[in-house]
Structures are given as structure tokens and as C-alpha cells.
Design a protein around this nucleic acid. Structure first.
Length: 493
RNA sequence: GGCGGCAUAGCCAAGUGGUUAAGGCAGCGGUCUGCAAAACCGUUAUUCAUCGGUUCGAAUCCGAUUGCCGCCUCCA
């Protein structure tokens, strides 16, 4: 089976064929470092994290580049208003970004270049575009002449005429065509600048990605991606710059994640309807946020709400409850290294066969345009199978059962490795989750445990009435008790 | 105005021509349990926004209609 992915450039799902056998180059546009990350940034990061993890899982040697835009109007504005340098601002938000992504379990990309590290490359590329007649200089600004690039609009599926018809074009006397975009801007007073053949200035937004992608991945690379709002104008302009200069395709596959919405509307700074990653991680385990994101296909819009996150939390709880049960069962196992899949009883063999099919089914779903919702469905199927199997097993469990459960655990963890889930110790996860939920509701863990202790004494004395009364009191606070041979545990509903 | 996307159960969400329309959450019934919980079993869409068409056969293809959303300005 080969991987298929949806290519926005061709508007088709295509078989993935890397330029170089066994190797993949990915460039995803990262953030402009002027503010903290919100859930939308988290989604994009998680999506491309899972794509790279899966490609690696399938044996590809992946080079993943994600840039930081550290020179831009908004960064300058923020630096000026706070009396700081642009570097202080971008440094602060890049660090915050990295902290958030680390907590979210997003693996660090292979390279994380910053625009200001590549000014020289940008100047060279702008020179090439000027030499080729694709750009022109006006009073220290350099603009790209879009009508000179015949394929302009091919990614976003619009023509220059269509865009001219649109009313919302910013008019500048300096531009020959209102759709022309800046490659280089002469610096105004109070703005940072770099020396260039056109005087002191700073780069336009789009040029950095053309330069950095080529620097790390070559003139043509495999996958270019980002949030779908980057299709136009950002990536359209990157194509014009890069392909205009090299005459070669910039990237073969263009992959975009959909937006996170709130009440059906795009999460954005201007609407003020955004939630920061830090906000959410105070209330939820990072894997809950990952599961929430991955339970929708990466291209679909996903509506964010506290309810939907709470649903994802229950899903993670199901996973970890099962993993915990597997661990408990396995802790009672002796040596089962002599067991193999071939000589099992009918019942063991049946469970074994179903559980060993998980990696295959998982890969099947992921091969199909990284269909994580389907892949996760298969993991839940396996959860049901292993739980049913465990329910039928008497303890102490047989070496054969140990073998089957060990196989199941490995299969779960292998899928988790790709999705960035199940990295926590199940016991820790469940306890942290419980305490966090208790905290959110203003419940005191000590009080709860004191009542549980009282109830334990009552149960020992077979005072069921008192035991049930305590259960009821706790239940009113959404606290659910579970009596097990090893003692009573509790959780929040 | 131009371009594009989406509409599947109470909620979330797979499925894009052909056996019983995945899975999760929530609900209900049962098993287990002192009572519970977890878990398991069963159950919850004869139907996929509406209307037409193509086809032996459509949630899936085509057309129209309605509704929602995104891009066209910085944006993940």
C-alpha cells in the first residue's frame, strides 16, 4: 500500500511519490512571533507533527522545516509600543511557542530557521527576480510583477482578472499593478533595516519562505503546507518567487489544515474568540487536545468548545483506563517469552489475531490522506476487543494471555507513537486527570479521601447504609467511587 | 462581486457507486457487583439538508435549491 494525500494544487488525492526514494522534505509555515499561540496554531502544529511522525513510521527519512517569521509589521508595532527591540519580542514568543509545542508533544522540526537569519539569501533571490524582469524597484521598494508570472493564481485557483474584480485591493501608487506584492520594503524611520542594493530596508513577508525552503530542501521539495489561510496570498506568492526564479516546481504536494472555529466562526485575534494553548493546557492534559484535533480529518474545520474537549477527555480516559488495566494484568505475569502466536488456544488466538491486525488497519487509515479519525476508530475497536478479552480472563492469568496482552500493549503504543498519544504512564495520567478535574470544580482531594477512608471503615463493618450514604454524598459532587480488591479509587464524572 | 469548502443519529465524526452506514461522547436495557464503578453484551440514523437526474444499484456521480463557513487584507 502506498500513501495517498490530497494535493491542493491539483485538487485531487494523489499517490505520494517522493522526489528521492525513501526521503521526504517538508516545509510548513510557522508562526509570526508577536503573540502567544492559540488552539489554531496548535492544530496546525499537531497535524504536521503527525504527518511527519507517520512518514517516519513508514520508514521515510523526513526533513521537516518550520520557519519563524521574526521580522514583520506586527512585531515592529509591538516592539515600538513596548519599547523593546524586535529581537526581544520575537525571541520571547518563539520561546513561548517552543514551550507550548513541547508540552503538546509536538516533536521539534529538523530545522527551525528564522527569517532574519536569511536576509542575504533574500537579497540574492530578489536580484535574480529583478534580472529576470519579474520584479521592479520603486524608491527603495522592490515589487513582484504578478502579471509577468503566467501561472500566477494556480494554487488558489483564481485568475488575475478574478482578483481585479474584487474590490478589496489596497491601492498603492508605487505599484504597477495593485496585486503586485513587496519583496523588499524601504525602511521608514524607527524601523529595523538591513543594507541592500536598493538602500536600507527590510524584506517582504513571502520572500523568506522561498529562500529558506530552498536553502534546506532544495529548489523542489516534496510537501509544502500550513493553515489553509496561507494558500492565498502567501503560498501563491512563494510559488511566483521561487518558480519564477528557478523555472522548477517549488513543491510537489500542497497540504493544508483546516481552521479551528468557535461557534462556527474562525478563531482569530480580530474576533477575539481565541483560546491560547496555555489556557487550555491548564484545564486539560495535552493529549486530550491532541485527541480532540485528531478526531477530525486535518482538512475539515473543527469547532472548538468546552463540551467537545470534555468529550475528548472521556475518550482519553477510556484509552488510559484500558492501558492501565493491561498493565495491572501484566504485572501478574511471569515469564512468557516462550509463547508465540502460532500455538494458542482458539480464544487466545482469536483475540491475538484481532489485536495484531490493529497496526495494519491503522496504517490503512493513515495511508489514506492521514485519516486519523478512522485510525482512532480502529484503536477504539481494539480497546473493546482487549477489554472483552480481559473480562474473560481469570487471574492469575495464563502465560498465553500475558503474551496476548503484551502484544496488545505494543500495538497501542505503536499507534500512539505516531499520533503522539499514550506517552504518559496510565496510572499517572488517570490520577493527574482526576486531580485536575477535582481542582477545576473546587473540590479538595483531602476531604474526598477522608470520606473514602470513613466509608472503608463502614464497609469493613458491613455498615452498607453508611457506606452508601457516603457514596451518595460524593456522587452529588460528581465523584465516582470504584471498589476494587486492592482498595477504593475515585474519579470525576 | 469572484473563488473554494461543508451539510451523515441528541452531540462529535468516518464512509465518496454495491454485503448489517466505522468509531467516540451522551442515553436506555442486561451481565458483573453488598450497592456502585470500570468492563462486556444488546440497543439508539430503513437513512445520509431538500428536490430532480444518471445507474440494475447512490450518503457516495450530475444539476438545481436551501443553509452554514472560509479565502479574496495580516492570519495556522
Amino acid at each position: 500500500m502506498s500513501i495517498k494525500l490530497y494535493n491542493t494544487l491539483t485538487k485531487k488525492k494523489e499517490k505520494f511519490e517522493p522526489l528521492v526514494e525513501g526521503k521526504v522534505g517538508i516545509y510548513a509555515c510557522g508562526i509570526t512571533a508577536y503573540d502567544v499561540c492559540h488552539i489554531g496554531h496548535a492544530r496546525s502544529a499537531v497535524v504536521f507533527d503527525v504527518i511527519t511522525r507517520y512518514l517516519r513510521y513508514r520508514g521515510y527519512d523526513v526533513t521537516y522545516v518550520k520557519n519563524f517569521t521574526d521580522i514583520d509589521d506586527k512585531i515592529i508595532a509591538k516592539a515600538n509600543s513596548e519599547g523593546k527591540t524586535i529581537f526581544e519580542i520575537s525571541e520571547k514568543y518563539i520561546r513561548e511557542h517552543d514551550e507550548d509545542m513541547d508540552v503538546l508533544g509536538v516533536a521539534r522540526p529538523t530545522f527551525v530557521p528564522r527569517a532574519t537569519e536569511h536576509i542575504g539569501g533574500m537579497i540574492s533571490l530578489i536580484r535574480v527576480l529583478l534580472d529576470k524582469g519579474l520584479a521592479y524597484e520603486v524608491e527603495g521598494d522592490v515589487y513582484y510583477a504578478v502579471e509577468k508570472f503566467v501561472e500566477y493564481g494556480k494554487l488558489s485557483g483564481r485568475s488575475l482578472e478574478d482578483m481585479m474584480a474584487g474590490a478589496r485591493i489596497d491601492v498603492s501608487e508605487k505599484k504597477n499593478n495593485p496585486l503586485d506584492f513587496a519583496l523588499w520594503k524601504a525602511s521608514k524611520a524607527g524601523e529595523p533595516w538591513w543594507e541592500s542594493p536598493w538602500g536600507r530596508g527590510r524584506p517582504g513577508w513571502h520572500i523568506e519562505c522561498s529562500v529558506m525552503s530552498q536553502h534546506f530542501l532544495g529548489e523542489t521539495f516534496d510537501i509544502h503546507g500550513g493553515g489553509e489561510d496561507l494558500i492565498f496570498p502567501h503560498h501563491e506568492n512563494e510559488i511566483a518567487q521561487s518558480e519564477g526564479a528557478t523555472g522548477k516546481p517549488l513543491a510537489n504536494y500542497w497540504v493544508y489544515n483546516g481552521f479551528v472555529t468557535v461557534d462556527g466562526e474562525k478563531m482569530s485575534k480580530s474576533l477575539g474568540n481565541f483560546f491560547t494553548v496555555k489556557d487550555i493546557l491548564q484545564s486539560y492534559h495535552p493529549e486530550v487536545l491532541r485527541l480532540f484535533v485528531l478526531q477530525s480529518h486535518y482538512k475539515s474545520p473543527v469547532d472548538f468548545s468546552d463540551e467537545s474537549l470534555a468529550d475528548a477527555r472521556m475518550g482519553m480516559e477510556r484509552f488510559y483506563t484500558t492501558l492501565n488495566a493491561i498493565n495491572e494484568a501484566l504485572s501478574g505475569c511471569g515469564d512468557f517469552s516462550g509463547i508465540t502466536g502460532e500455538k494458542l488456544s482458539a480464544k487466545d488466538s482469536d483475540a491475538y489475531a484481532k489485536l495484531t491486525s490493529l497496526p495494519e488497519r491503522f496504517a490503512d487509515a493513515m495511508d489514506d490522506d492521514f485519516n486519523t479519525p478512522r485510525a482512532i476508530g480502529y484503536i477504539f475497536d481494539a480497546v473493546r476487543i482487549v477489554n472483552g478479552y480481559m473480562a474473560d480472563e481469570k487471574s492469575p492469568i495464563s502465560p498465553e494471555a500475558c503474551f496476548v496482552l503484551d502484544t496488545a500493549k505494543r500495538a497501542f503504543l505503536a499507534t500512539g507513537e505516531v499520533l503522539g498519544l499514550f506517552f504518559d504512564d496510565p496510572d499517572d495520567y488517570l490520577r493527574k486527570n482526576r486531580d485536575r478535574e477535582a481542582g477545576k470544580r473546587g473540590l479538595d482531594v483531602k476531604d474526598i479521601e477522608r470520606l473514602i477512608e470513613e466509608r472503608r471503615a463502614a464497609r469493613l463493618a458491613k455498615d452498607w447504609k453508611k457506606a452508601d450514604e457516603i457514596r451518595r454524598v460524593l456522587a452529588d459532587k460528581k465523584i465516582i467511587l470504584r471498589d476494587a480488591p486492592s482498595g477504593t479509587t475515585w474519579k470525576i464524572a
